[in-house]
């Protein structure tokens, strides 16, 4: 089709052609748009409406009236939270808990994957993978039930402590033990599953590299040190940055099922506090503000880690 530019301005043509192109596009691919519609409606209702609902964080929301009917108070709820006794405690607990999970939990899947790659028997390796992935699929409720059971005064951990001549410890009622119990159970549940990416990266290494190293007289340790580790380094960096990006979004579910008022001093994190404030205490506005504070930090962390990852490995995290 010949396009003629007459007396109309260029902007007008752009506008016209954009909307007419869009109209044509919608007309031509209406089935595709219709197929996307239900999911898009879901995102609009369940994800975007609550974002509008964040107005409650800046107003005095009352349960009896609509979400937007509360009087606007600006950053009052945020400032109240920053000034409160809980702010530092919650921030410290949230960060320390996820940092400990990161520090102790991060190297183990890598070591596990490296050791597993040294196993020559295929069937044994398969069994090991099957078994170590399993805890990942068991519900948090059951995991926490078992944690409480094994750390009880009458449980396995205390039996071991006593066998070595120690005094039994009531782990679940001691704030100083909460993070250790949490991190230990987290590693138990996730180390196998978190190794999946490393196992896959290791199995993708060209086998001729190992053969060449073998001919040069390299030991097994040298092969790990100079071939395996450098090959999976980009994956390690990517996963590490991703986990740092999620430092502030540590899971609510497990803390909620393990903590109790006696361990709040170390166990209470931002999300569990939001739950108690908002859902149990009906202080919706201040709870929404605290939640927003958490998600804002989250967003900044994720975006900056992604930027770093893009620079380092030319590989964005999403």
């Amino acid at each position: 089709m010949p396009r003629t530019i007459g007396t109309k301005t260029a902007v007008n043509i752009m506008k016209e052609s954009f909307f007419s192109r869009l109209k044509n596009d919608l007309h031509k691919h209406w089935i595709l748009y219709l197929m996307a519609l239900p999911a898009l409606v879901y995102f609009a209702v369940y994800c975007y409406t609550p974002m509008l609902g964040l107005y409650t964080a800046f107003s005095n929301y009352k349960i009896t009236s609509g979400i937007f009917s509360g009087s606007f108070v600006g950053f009052k709820h945020f400032i109240d939270f920053f000034k409160s006794y809980y702010f530092l405690r919650l921030l410290r607990n949230t960060l320390l808990l996820s940092l400990e999970v990161l520090i102790w939990g991060f190297p183990i899947p890598i070591i596990f994957a490296l050791v597993l790659s040294e196993i020559k028997s295929n069937s044994f390796r398969k069994v090991a993978q099957t078994v170590t992935y399993l805890p990942h699929f068991i519900s948090v409720i059951v995991i926490c039930g078992m944690v409480i059971d094994f750390t009880s005064m009458n449980g396995l951990i205390n039996a071991i402590i006593q066998a070595f001549g120690g005094e039994p410890i009531a782990f679940m009622t001691k704030p100083e033990w909460f993070r250790t119990v949490y991190v230990g159970s987290e590693i138990w549940q996730k180390f196998g599953w978190n190794a999946v990416v490393f196992i896959a990266a290791l199995s993708a290494i060209d086998i001729s590299q190992f053969e060449a190293a073998h001919l040069d007289g390299a030991s097994r340790w040298q092969k790990i040190r100079y071939i395996s580790l450098p090959s999976i380094l980009p994956v390690i960096v990517t996963v590490l940055l991703m986990q740092v990006g999620h430092l502030m979004s540590i899971g609510f579910e497990k803390v909620f099922n393990l903590y109790s008022p006696v361990t709040y001093a170390t166990a209470d994190i931002i999300s569990t506090f939001v739950y108690r404030q908002g859902i149990l205490g009906a202080n919706y506005s201040s709870a929404a503000a605290i939640g927003l504070f958490n998600s804002a930090i989250n967003l900044i962390l994720v975006l900056s880690m992604n930027a770093i990852s893009r620079k380092l490995t030319e590989n964005s995290l999403w």
Binding site: D25, L32, C47, Y61, G278
Partner: peptide, 28 residues
């Protein structure tokens, strides 16, 4: 080949990085 692929994908992906949180979602 569909024109709205980019904006709609962005619309979907954005929810991965930011959400209203527990309380606003509950209120909705």
């Amino acid at each position: 080949n569909i024109m709205l692929k980019k904006p709609l994908t962005l619309f979907v992906m954005f929810t991965m990085f930011f959400n209203g949180g527990m309380i606003p979602t509950y209120l909705v």
